[in-house]
Amino acid sequence: MSVYGEGESPRSVEDLLGSALMSRLNRLDVLSRKVFSGKIHGERRSRRRGQSVDFADYRPYAAGDDLRFVDWNIYARLETLFLKLFMEEEDLSLAIAVDTSPSMDWGGPNKLGFCKRLAMSLGYIGLVNQHRVSLFGFDGDGVSQLNSIRGRSRTREMANWLIDLSPGSSPGLETGMKSIAQGRRGRGVLVVLSDFLEPDGYDAGLRYLAGSGDDVFCLQVLAPEELDPGSQGLSGDVRLRDVETGQDCEITVTPALLRRYRENLDAYCSQLRDWCTRRGIGNLSIGTDVDMEVLLVEYLRRQGLLQ
């Protein structure tokens, strides 16, 4: 496992989000499977009727209604006053939570670096589409956040925040999710970037998100060494040391053991997916070696997170 170790972490905006990708992301938007109420007028259709150009419904005219919205054509045919209702366009709250536990600072390409670039891309999409973007970093040491930024001009601020985001010393999915769920005001789209390889299980943490009302997406990020350790050079008699717990696991790598590991990994990911599906949480397992543009343009669009 010669490539096992820490990978490169993004050090500039260009590292996080290249200009070419940035231009392609301008055409994308975050898609929410739910309709949330925005705080300010935005570019997103709201459940409330408002003043957008999108027709929503009719209702009988009542005294005091604005006569500008009376549909005179219907009045001409039916001699009854009906009021045209239009969709209200509001802004969207996009929260991106990045797992900064020690297990994320591992792999080649580095999982945390990959998550930073993915968070940067998603955040950029949110900023471009005038959404309120919030970024969270969580680990056992606590939650750091960049709260509610809006507009393309905040791109650099977001990038700098991500660059400064450093790995913690211990895992903290449960506490992080709890803190994020309880600290959020308003609902929106919440994307969690993590490997979900929690010694104590992921379900306790995700349970906080499942009941928060947010449209939650769990993107499980795994390194190639985790997906297929055999092809990445793991062989012989080795002592595997957990970077989070310091626990050692002595193994003798055999085809049977690798096969068993792959089966366990598939089962683990499948079970995470099932768990999320049952609770209305979107889920996608991705490797850090996947091309970011392919991920954003194809995978996440197919998953309904982007459009």
């Binding site: 297990s103 591992w106 390889l197 080795v238 957990d242 970077v243 050692d248 053991l257």
Partner: peptide, 22 residues
């Protein structure tokens, strides 16, 4: 004990379960 080389890994969770299965 066999002298083994130590490799850091993100999580030994799956490895433990793989060997424990056997």
């Amino acid at each position: 004990k066999l002298r083994r080389r130590t490799l850091p890994i993100s999580s030994t969770l799956l490895w433990f379960t793989s060997t424990e299965d056997l």
